[in-house]
Design a protein around this nucleic acid. Structure first.
Length: 260
DNA sequence: ATGGTAGAAGGTCTA
């Protein structure tokens, strides 16, 4: 089963690129971030025509996530538990039930950016990460295969950014953000991309500004974390870097994992 | 020190 995550930066602008990529990559399950529309404006029919079940957690103008699956979905949940006043659409979760394999729970997330830091947006990011850790702990207790995939807006290590010193004060690379990410990772997850390639430079985002793509000024912030039971089924993982060089690209590229 | 780009929106705000 191939599971992918892609921050599309507007689902409707990116639709041609996404369909083209689906055709080539043939993912079974996809979580999307920054769809930037309400549920009614999500192009569900286009994906249903490709054979996907479609679940959307949208929002006007900002954020918005979706989950697409070739297999039946059970127990779809929208919103990260732990704060009833949080109305930002950043989390969707469901149990994916293939016909010929064990089920896998898939969590799609769009973690807050947190800039400028320090400040209220950074506080919101760190609180959101505490809630994500709680959700992860609850799911780990079930000892089932699950995957947490999405735009984490965290650069885990210095080798995941082209200019570590220049990013030292950024909310994506500050010590508190990285510590919170490690706290989640060290609960027992496997970082699928690092599992596949322990030492490579594997950026997933290049800013639209300052010719970042041309200079390869990238950062690695889109991640797929595997629970121990999912990691046992790990086959391969990758970053589809070429997508960034296409016409009208997202500033992120798709990241994927294959599990048995 | 500023601004550079992109998207939703039709103000600026977010990234």
């Amino acid at each position: 089963m191939k599971i992918a995550t892609f921050n599309v930066n507007s689902i409707n602008v990116r639709l041609p690129r996404i369909l083209e990529w689906f055709d080539k990559a043939k993912p079974d399950v996809v979580v999307l971030q920054e769809i930037k529309c309400v549920d009614e404006k999500f192009p569900a029919l286009e994906f249903e025509d490709c054979g996907y079940n479609v679940e959307v957690h949208g929002q006007k103008t900002y954020n918005g996530v979706a989950l697409l699956s070739k297999f039946p979905l059970d127990g779809v949940a929208r919103g990260l538990p732990g704060d009833k006043d949080d109305d930002q659409a950043r989390y969707i979760e469901a149990l994916v039930c293939p016909d010929d394999a064990e089920p896998v729970r898939v969590c799609g997330l769009y973690l807050p950016n947190g800039n400028p830091a320090p400040g209220p947006k950074y506080d919101y990011k760190l609180k959101w990460m505490t809630r994500l850790k709680k959700r992860a702990q609850a799911l780990l207790a079930d000892e089932e295969a699950f995957v947490m995939a999405g735009d984490f807006n965290v650069i885990p290590q210095a080798e995941d950014v082209y200019d570590p010193a220049g990013w030292a004060e950024d909310a994506l690379f500050r010590p508190e953000s990285r510590a919170a990410f490690r706290e989640i990772l060290y609960l027992g997850f496997t970082d699928a991309i690092r599992q596949q390639n322990p030492n490579g430079v594997l950026y997933t985002f290049w800013d639209y500004q300052r010719g970042a793509w041309e200079k390869d000024h990238g950062i690695r912030i889109d991640h797929i974390l595997l629970s121990p039971q999912a990691a046992d089924r790990f086959k391969a993982a990758g970053v589809d870097r070429k997508e960034r060089g296409k016409e009208k690209p997202s500033d992120h590229v798709p990241v994927w994992v294959e599990i048995a």
